[in-house]
Design a binder for these strands. Structure first.
Lengths: 156, 156
DNA sequence: CCCCCTTTGACCTTCTTTGACCTTTTTCGT
DNA sequence: ACGAAAAAGGTCAAAGAAGGTCAAAGGGGG
């Protein structure tokens, strides 16, 4: 039993596949799917949020519209800037905070974040300065790697 | 006397035999077996756990579903085995070789491999034993993370 | 007889769909 | 120009449609 909202989501996604952004007419789309116009808003607000990599712009009145944009999630320079400002030494909890913040901002995928946390996170332990320098260095290299990754395939 | 839960287990197993994953509707299935819907949850939670090689995904609300996936244990096990046999100390080039081998075997994605290489790869340098132990430890944790990741993904 | 695995049922949480009513913008007649 | 009507889209809450939880009752084998 495919849900209506999933169908509408697919329709919009399909349209987006061709050009980075689409322009819709809420009432017409609702009519096409034989549903309440507000259903379109529901789909937009649950599936096309900024957190999911989309931006929606609308205009009321005659000639109104709904435009859905795919936002550029490649935060290459953001990641690089964070990376450049990384302290030379990092405790595990500090590294975790950095990765978490980047993930929340959508600059890292959850999978990337998890892998990084496995490497540099964990509970704080007694460590030599050397170990903490090493951690900063490793995190830095992983972040650069992630940034490069985003540059190439436009991550969803 | 064949127990109800065994019947349901068999039913799902049979369905899985055909395609690696099945989509169920909890209430409908319960009706077919004339039992309480929560019985389905009981079967899922006792017979289709990750430890037993399955993953379950559900969604509530209209058009909700229960999907049961068979996990590709071989890749998970392979990664875990390699991980368990990792030496206690690792030079960068050795770490690289391990990661490369796993990637070539398809046990790691290229993206995973690249991130790992950023963390533990690179040119061999003069290092303390401590650094090499740390490298082995980090790689090990990343590999375990990757293995867990695979458990979470569809085998389609 | 007891313990552990099953089964059931009452109640909860989440997600979807619809409809009534509101706001903004444009168009059109005077 | 101005104000009313038309043309969009927005909001919100209620109803409906799944699935989730948990604890208590049932039953079988040791």
């Amino acid at each position: 039993m495919a849900r209506l909202c999933d169908d509408i989501e697919q329709f919009i996604l399909q349209a987006l596949r061709q050009s980075g952004w689409v322009e819709l007419q809420r009432n017409i789309l609702a009519a096409q799917f034989s549903c309440a116009p507000s259903q379109i808003n529901y789909v937009l607000s649950t599936r096309f949020t900024p957190a999911q990599g989309f931006r929606v712009e609308t205009r009321r009145g005659g000639g109104g519209f709904v435009r859905v944009f795919r936002i550029d999630r490649s935060r290459v320079d953001y990641v690089q800037r964070v990376c450049a400002q990384l302290p030379i030494r990092l405790a595990a909890s500090q590294a975790e905070a950095v990765v978490e913040a980047l993930r929340k901002d959508g600059a890292l995928s959850s999978a990337q974040a998890r892998l990084m946390l496995a490497a540099v996170g964990g509970p704080d332990r007694e460590e030599s300065e050397y170990a903490q320098r090493m951690r900063a260095d490793i995190l830095s290299r992983m972040l650069m790697c992630a940034a490069k990754e985003e540059e190439q395939h436009d991550v969803r």
